[in-house]
Computed example of a mutant assay.
Amino acid sequence: MTTTRRGGVSRPPYDTFNLGDHVGDAPAAVAANRKRLADTIGADGVVWMNQVHSDRVVVVDGDPGATVDDTDALVTTTPRLALAVLSADCVPVLLADARAGVIGAAHAGRVGAQLGIVARTVEKMVALGASPDDISVLLGPAVSGRHYEVPAIMADEVEAALPGSRTTTEKGTPGLDIRAGIARQLTTLGITTIDIDPRCTVEDRALFSHRRDAPTGRLASLVWME
């Protein structure tokens, strides 16, 4: 699941359901929003990350409400423990192998995706017993290639590391579609059950977008097992 901007207590420009504690919002508002989310989903707790655009994956097995520092992906085999990704244009990647009982959540911005954060997450899941044939993936709302304009050199560099990412924006300039690149990467890893949320964070005013509105809040995308 992925949250929207609605339903929280944060004041502008973080209005209202901001779940990021690193963007300048009042800590009490973020804490209240996070508690509301945890209470609503009905899991035993939520594990958060202090994301740093890396390829680091951490396995967690408890401590609901904790925040894992300096990482961009979490993996667990613990039922009812929700893993959360914060985003406001980057790609939230939610993965699950229901048969093996292994789930993962990754934050794939341009840098992390280029470094291979999604592939590292799959590798960690497989090490815990997951099978690529049984892993299903959701790529959540993110900036679309229509609005992700970058220098041509950067587009080429990302394309070299993550084939399928380079695209053309609505202006006719070089751009990136990170979700397309990740989807292609997943297929090379043997994963074929891939769903892509079509929403563009820049276009959809119900979602936070750093590129459109900075400073602004952060959405949360979550995955958990019953």
Rank of each mutant, 00 (worst) to 15 (best):
M1F: 11
M1D: 13
T2E: 15
G7E: 10
G7S: 12
R11D: 13
R11Y: 00
P13S: 11
P13R: 12
P13K: 13
F17C: 11
N18Q: 06
L19R: 10
D21V: 11
H22N: 13
G24M: 13
A26D: 15
A28T: 08
A28Y: 00
A31K: 13
R36C: 02
R36W: 03
L37W: 04
D44C: 01
W48Y: 14
Q51A: 15
S54L: 10
D55F: 09
D55Y: 09
D55P: 10
R56P: 01
V57H: 03
D63N: 14
P64E: 09
T67H: 01
T67M: 09
T67P: 01
D69K: 15
D70A: 12
D72I: 05
D72V: 07
A73N: 05
T77F: 00
T77V: 06
T77S: 14
A84M: 13
A84Q: 09
V85C: 08
V85K: 07
S87D: 15
V93P: 09
L95C: 06
A96D: 08
H107T: 11
H107R: 11
R110K: 14
G116K: 08
I117K: 10
I117D: 07
T121E: 05
V126T: 10
L128N: 10
L128A: 12
G129E: 09
P132F: 03
G140S: 05
P141R: 09
A142F: 07
V143Q: 08
G145M: 07
Y148G: 03
A152M: 07
D156K: 12
E157Y: 01
V158N: 01
E159A: 04
L162H: 04
L162C: 09
L162Y: 07
L162A: 10
T167Q: 11
T168V: 15
K171P: 00
T173L: 15
P174Y: 12
I178C: 03
I182F: 02
I182G: 12
A183L: 08
R184L: 12
T187A: 14
G190T: 02
I191T: 04
T192H: 15
D195M: 05
R199T: 15
R199H: 08
R205Q: 03
R205L: 06
A206P: 00
F208S: 07
S209L: 10
R212D: 02
R218F: 15
L222H: 05
